[in-house]
Design a protein around this nucleic acid. Sequence first.
DNA 1: GCCAACGTTGGC
DNA 2: GCCAACGTTGGC
Length: 165
Amino acid sequence: MISSMPTANDRCRFWLMKNEPDESSIDHALRAPSASIAWSGVRNYQARNFMRDDMQAGDGVLYWHSGCAEPGIYGIARIAGNLRVDPSQFDPADPYYDPKSSPDKPRWLMLDVQALRKTRPLLIAELRGQPALAQMRVLQKGNRLSITPVSAEEWQAIEDLLEAR
DNA sequence: GCCAACGTTGGC
DNA sequence: GCCAACGTTGGC
């Protein structure tokens, strides 16, 4: 299967994005106009660079709920584009305020994510039980990144899991 | 609430 | 530019 081997030119077309359900659950996103929400509050350079350099409109997104009783995948979404400066970094009253950022030299970006559908919860324990997902970034020990790349194989394995039940 | 892992900060 | 201290994340 040489033809399916990844090459250096391959670009990630799938992502996993974490959000706390208290702030923005998949249900909240689905209720929004056009089911789209601005993915604001990213304050990590690696995650920002993914948005800036690698994410493109149409890319698939696994919608993860974190910081809750049962973390895991709760929905499917897509990148809707519209990369722009995240205004919350300039607002002292905002929990994501960054005093070291300024409007003439903004640090943080955001883009729109469009929720497509809710899935049954795919919790960590179930995901860890899948050999095809052994390398998945979000399942690695010590992973804290709120945006991680997902391989085409991992994406397919998730779809298979959802179809199986 | 704990704590391991990780990113950031700042003194040197 | 090193690296110890600190703060944060996030599963458990």
